[in-house]
Write a protein that binds this DNA or RNA. Structure first.
Length: 880
RNA sequence: GGACGAUUAGCUCAGCUGGUAGAGCAUCCGCUUGACGUGCGGAAGGUCGCAGGUUCGAGUCCUACAUCGUCCACCA
C-alpha cells in the first residue's frame, strides 16, 4: 500500500496477489507439531461436476472464517479439502456428452466408459477447486483428496468387507426405490416426496364363484398386472364371508385370493385393498404374511415386462392409460375421483421413482444407529443450533436399512464375487480370483457400485490415512467442527457419525455447525430451472471477495435461511472502502521508521485510553462470540467498532494532534492509531482476509503475514474505565450540540462560541479541543456559573453538562423555552419510571445488585439532567 | 399425523445466559469539515403475530391459538 494510493479500494488488484503470497508462504499447510493443539475441519467435498454456487460460498466462508480464527489463536489449524466423485451426477454428465456423439455408455462398454469419466474428471475436476480459491479458502491444498483416489478406495473396501464380516451388510430382495430414468436403485434419503394431483380409480374385481364382487381403489392402476391378492380387515363385517374366496383379476385372466390382514383400514375407500407385493412396500409385507405371489411387472426402465401380457413394452404411464381404458371398456371401472397424494421423486432427475422389488445390498442400520444416537445424546457431538440434534435423533431412531448398491458404472465397485458353480458370494479385501467356498474360478464380480454417500461417510478419517494407523490420524482425528447445510444432515452428517463410531471408535467431530440455504431476494430457492441463481464469482468480480464473505456472515444466524441481497454486497464493499481509507489516513502520517509499539502509559491521552479501553472490550466479546460460533454477532461488533468507534470518532479525535506541531503528541496519537488498526485488522481478518492482509502488509508489523499473526487478547492494563466515561461525557456534549445545530439548520461553516457549565470542569477543559473541532465551536469556555444573559443563546443539556451557544437572531427565546419544556417532560417521565422501579421494594430486594445500581445511576443522571433543564428554563423565562 | 422454524422500523434481518429494542438498505434535512460523497453530521420510523401465565421486571421463559414455511411419516 503506497501513500499516494487510490481513494477507492480495488479488490481485483489485491486478491489474486495476496492469495498467491499465502500459497507460496505455505500458510495453509499444517503438519503435526508436538505440543501444539490441532484444530481440524474437513470440507464437505463438492461434486466434481460442480459449479460454484452460493451454497458453496456460504459453506466455505464459514469454514474459512473459523479456521483462520483458530489458526491465529495458535492452533495447528488444518482444513482438508477434496472433491466427491458424485456417482449419478457425474455419470449422467458424461453420458450427456456421449449422447452428443450419438452414443450411449453401452456402446463403449464399462472399461472404455470409465476411462472417459476419468478423462473428464482430470479435465474439469479442478475447476471447482480454482473457484474455491477465489473465495479465499485457506485449505491445505497439499492434502486435497478425491473420494475415488487410492486411499479412499482402500478405505471403502475395508469398510465394506468389515461390515459384511460383522453381518452388517447383506444382500437381499427388498422393495427399494427405483429411478427408471437414472436406471438405478436409490436409498430412502434420495427420494423426495412431492404432493401431486392424481386420481383414485375404483375397480371391480368379480368373485370367481359368481357370488358378487369387491371394489378396490388404487392410484396406480397399472400395478394391477402384478396383483396377487386382495386384502380386507379381519374385523370388517362386510367381508367376513368372502375371506378365503378368490377373485378374477380383470384383464389378466387370473385368480387371486382374498386375505384378511389388519393392514386394510375399514374406513378407507371400500375397505378392500389390492395387493401388489412386488411394487409396494406395505403390500410386500402383507404378501409375506399371507404367502402371496410376488410378481414384478415393470422392467428397469419403467416399462411393462413380459409378465404384463399385451401391455408388455409400454411405458408405465402409457400402460396406465391403456389399462384404465380397457377396464372401462370391460365394465370394470366403477368410478374415478380426483386424488392428491405424495409421489416419490428422484433427487437427481426429479422423475417419479417406482417402489420395486429388487436384489440389492443393504447396510443393517439398527446396530450402527445405537452408538450414533448415544454420542449425540451424551453431547460428544453437539449440533449448533441445538435443535438440529432433534432432527438428527428422530431420523437415526427410525432409520431403516440403507440400500447401498447402485446400478451405475462410475463409483466404487462392490467387492463381491458370485460363484457360478455353488452360488456362494465371496466378499474380499483383495480382488478375488476363486470362490472361497468351492474354489471354483468361475466367479463374477458384482457389477454394481456403491452409493456415493458410502464413501463420503468415511471422509473425516479416510482423508487422514485410515485404515492405516497414521500419525496424522492420531493427531488430527477426531476433527473439530463440521460445517454444512441442514439439507444434508441425513445424507452425510448422520452417516459420518455412525461410520466414525463404528470404524474408529470415535465420533468424527465434536460440533456440527449447521447453516441454512441461500435464497434469492424473493425468498425462493436458487435453482437452475428458475434461473434465479446468483453467481458468487460474479459478486466477487463486482464487489470483491471480502464483501461477498461479509454478506454471507452478517445479519445471519446459524441454521436459518438467508435471502441474498446484492445491496448487502454493496454495503460491505463500502465498508471495505471505509477501512481502506482509514488505513490510508494512518499511512499518510506514518513516519518512515514507523514501528508498531504502544507509547508509554503516561503519554496516553484521554482519547487514546478511551479507544484502547473500547478495543479491549471488543476483543473480549468478539472472541467469546466466535468461540460460541456466533459469527454474525462477532462480525457486527467488529464492523461497528471499525466504522463508528475507530473511524467516526477516534480518527477525528486524533486530527488535532496529527496536524499539530507538537511531535511528541503527534507520535503518541500515531502509535495508538497504528496499534488499534493492527489489532482490528487481526480481528477482522478471518472475515475479510484479503483487504486486511493487504493493509497489514503495509503497516509496521512482526511476522510474515497477517494470516499467521496472533489473535488479539484482552489486556487488563489497557482497561481505562474512568477515562472511558470521561470521554463519553465529552462525546455526549458534542452530540447534543450537533443535534441542536442541525435542528436549527446551522451549517458547520458557521462557527460559534460555546459555554459549558458542568460538574466535571476538568474533563471538559481537557476535552475542549475535541468540542471545538467536532462541534464547530470557535472557542470553548468552561463556566463557573450560569451565564447571566441568555438572550440569543441556544442551549442544550446532557446528564453532566449544560451547553450554551450564542446564536444571535437565530434564536427565538420563546421557542427555546418550548423545546426545553418538551425535553423536561421526557426527562421527568423517564425519571418517574426509574423512581417507580427503585421504590418498589421487591425490585430492590430481588433484582441483582448490579442491576439495581445501574438503575440508581440512571436515576441520578436523569435528576441531573432535569435540574439542568429546569435551571435553563428559569433563565429563559426571564427573557420573556 | 408428528417435529421444527419464522412472525421485531417501509424492506431484509440481528438481538447470547430475562433488565423499557438495533443494523443494512430505503426515506427526510444539512454538509466541497485537510482518509473516505462507496463519505460526514442529524432526523423520522416499532404497543417486538394474538391471548393468557411465570417474574420485581418478558422481544427474550411457559401454555394455547393464528398465519407462513421446512422436514419426517402415512397415503388403497
Amino acid at each position: 500500500m503506497q501513500r499516494e494510493l487510490s481513494k477507492v479500494y480495488d479488490p481485483k488488484a489485491v486478491e489474486s496477489r495476496i492469495y498467491e503470497m499465502w500459497e507460496e508462504g505455505g500458510y495453509f499447510h499444517a503438519e503435526r507439531e508436538d505440543g501444539k493443539k490441532p484444530f481440524t475441519i474437513v470440507m464437505p467435498p463438492p461434486n466434481v461436476t460442480g459449479q460454484l454456487h452460493m451454497g458453496h460460498a456460504m459453506d466455505a466462508t464459514l469454514q474459512d472464517t473459523l479456521i483462520r480464527f483458530k489458526r491465529m489463536q495458535g492452533y495447528n489449524a488444518l482444513w482438508i479439502p477434496g472433491v466427491d466423485h458424485a456417482g449419478i451426477a457425474t455419470q449422467i454428465k458424461v453420458e450427456e456428452e456421449l449422447r452428443k456423439e450419438g452414443k450411449t455408455r453401452y456402446d463403449l462398454g464399462r472399461e472404455k466408459f470409465l476411462e472417459k469419466v476419468w478423462d473428464w474428471k482430470h479435465r474439469y475436476g479442478n475447476r471447482i477447486v480454482e473457484q474455491q480459491k477465489k473465495l479465499g479458502a485457506s485449505c491445505d491444498w497439499d492434502r486435497a483428496r478425491f473420494t475415488m483416489d487410492d486411499g479412499c478406495s482402500k478405505a471403502v473396501r475395508e469398510v465394506f468387507v468389515s461390515l459384511y464380516e460383522k453381518g452388517l451388510i447383506y444382500k437381499g430382495n427388498r422393495i427399494i426405490n427405483w429411478c427408471p430414468h437414472c436406471v438405478t436403485a436409490l436409498s430412502d434419503a434420495e427420494v423426495e416426496y412431492v404432493d401431486k394431483p392424481g386420481h383414485l380409480w375404483h375397480i371391480r374385481y368379480p368373485l370367481t364363484d359368481g357370488s358378487g364382487e369387491v371394489v378396490v381403489a388404487t392410484t396406480r392402476p397399472e400395478t394391477m398386472l402384478g396383483d396377487s391378492g386382495v386384502c380386507v380387515n379381519p374385523a370388517d363385517e362386510r367381508y367376513k364371508d368372502i375371506v378365503g374366496k378368490t377373485v378374477a383379476l380383470p384383464l389378466v385372466n387370473k385368480q387371486i385370493p382374498i386375505v384378511a390382514d389388519d393392514y386394510a383400514e375399514m374406513e378407507f375407500g371400500t375397505g378392500c385393498v389390492k395387493m401388489t407385493p412386488a411394487h409396494d412396500p406395505n403390500d410386500f409385507e402383507v404378501g409375506k404374511r399371507h404367502n402371496l405371489e410376488v410378481i414384478r411387472v415393470l422392467d428397469d426402465n419403467g416399462r411393462v415386462n413380459a409378465l404384463g401380457g399385451k401391455y408388455q413394452g409400454l411405458d408405465r404411464y402409457e400402460a396406465r392409460k391403456q389399462i384404465v381404458a380397457d377396464l372401462e371398456a370391460g365394465g370394470y371401472l366403477v368410478r374415478v375421483e380426483d386424488y392428491s397424494h405424495s409421489v416419490g421423486t428422484c433427487y437427481r432427475c426429479h422423475n417419479d421413482v417406482e417402489p420395486i422389488i429388487s436384489d440389492q445390498w443393504f447396510v443393517k442400520m439398527k446396530p450402527l444407529a445405537e452408538e450414533a444416537i448415544r454420542v449425540v445424546k451424551d453431547g460428544q457431538t453437539k449440533f449448533v443450533p441445538e435443535r438440529f440434534s432433534k432432527t438428527y435423533l428422530n431420523w437415526m431412531e427410525n432409520v431403516r436399512d440403507w440400500c447401498i448398491s447402485r446400478q451405475l458404472w462410475w463409483g466404487h465397485q462392490i467387492p463381491a464375487w458370485t460363484c457360478a458353480d455353488c452360488g456362494h458370494i465371496t466378499v474380499s479385501r483383495e480382488d478375488a480370483c476363486k470362490c472361497e467356498k468351492c474354489g471354483s474360478t468361475r466367479i463374477q464380480r458384482d457389477p454394481d457400485v456403491l452409493d456415493t454417500w458410502f464413501s463420503s461417510a468415511l471422509w473425516p478419517f479416510e482423508t487422514l490415512g485410515w485404515p492405516e494407523k497414521t500419525e496424522d490420524l492420531d493427531y488430527f482425528y477426531p476433527t473439530d467442527v463440521l460445517v454444512t447445510g441442514y439439507d444434508i444432515i441425513f445424507f452425510w452428517v448422520a452417516r459420518m457419525i455412525f461410520s466414525g463410531c463404528e470404524h474408529t471408535g470415535k465420533t468424527p467431530f465434536h460440533t456440527v455447525l449447521i447453516h441454512g440455504l441461500v435464497r434469492d431476494d424473493k425468498g425462493r430457492k436458487m435453482s437452475k430451472s428458475l434461473g434465479n441463481g446468483i453467481d458468487p464469482l460474479d459478486m466477487i468480480d463486482r464487489y470483491g471477495c471480502d464483501a461477498l464473505r461479509m454478506n454471507m456472515i452478517t445479519g445471519n444466524s446459524p441454521g436459518n435461511d438467508m435471502r441474498f441481497y446484492v445491496e448487502r454486497c454493496e454495503a460491505m464493499r463500502n465498508f471495505a472502502n471505509k477501512l481502506w481509507n482509514a488505513s490510508r489516513y494512518v499511512m499518510m502520517n506514518l513516519p518512515e521508521d514507523g514501528e508498531n509499539r504502544l507509547p508509554d502509559r503516561d503519554k496516553l491521552e484521554i482519547a487514546d485510553k478511551w479507544v484502547l479501553s473500547k478495543l479491549n472490550t471488543l476483543i473480549a466479546e468478539a472472541t467469546e462470540n466466535l468461540e460460541k460460533y456466533e459469527l454474525g454477532i462477532a462480525v457486527q461488533k467488529i464492523y461497528d467498532f471499525i466504522w463508528d468507534t475507530y473511524c467516526d470518532w477516534y480518527i477525528e479525535l486524533t486530527k488535532a494532534r496529527l496536524y499539530s506541531e507538537d511531535p511528541e503528541r503527534k507520535k503518541t496519537a500515531l502509535q495508538v492509531l497504528v496499534y488499534v488498526l493492527d489489532q482490528v485488522l487481526r480481528l477482522l481478518h478471518p472475515f475479510m482476509p484479503f483487504i486486511t492482509e493487504e493493509i497489514w502488509q503495509s503497516l509496521p508489523h512482526d511476522g510474515p503475514a497477517l494470516i499467521r499473526a496472533s489473535w488479539p487478547v484482552y489486556r487488563q492494563e489497557l482497561a481505562f474505565r474512568e477515562e472511558e466515561a470521561h470521554m463519553e461525557s465529552v462525546m455526549n456534549a458534542i452530540r447534543a450540540i450537533r443535534n441542536r445545530r442541525a435542528e436549527m439548520n446551522v451549517p458547520p461553516s458557521k462557527k460559534a462560541s460555546l459555554y459549558v457549565l458542568t460538574a466535571k470542569p476538568e474533563v471538559f477543559r481537557e476535552g475542549a479541543d475535541f468540542v471545538e473541532r467536532l462541534a464547530y465551536a470557535d472557542s470553548v469556555t468552561v463556566l463557573e456559573n450560569a451565564p447571566e444573559n441568555l438572550d440569543g443563546m441556544l442551549s442544550c443539556a446532557t446528564s453532566d453538562a449544560k451547553l450554551y451557544i450564542p446564536m444571535g437572531q437565530l434564536v427565538d427565546a420563546a421557542k427555546e423555552l418550548e423545546r426545553i419544556d418538551k425535553e423536561l417532560e421526557k426527562a421527568r417521565k423517564n425519571l418517574a419510571s426509574l423512581e417507580g422501579k427503585l421504590s418498589n421494594e421487591k425490585f430492590v430486594s430481588r433484582a441483582p445488585e448490579a442491576v439495581v445500581n445501574a438503575e440508581r445511576e440512571k436515576a441520578r443522571k436523569a435528576q441531573d439532567l432535569i435540574a439542568g433543564l429546569e435551571q435553563s428554563r428559569a433563565e429563559f423565562q426571564k427573557l420573556l
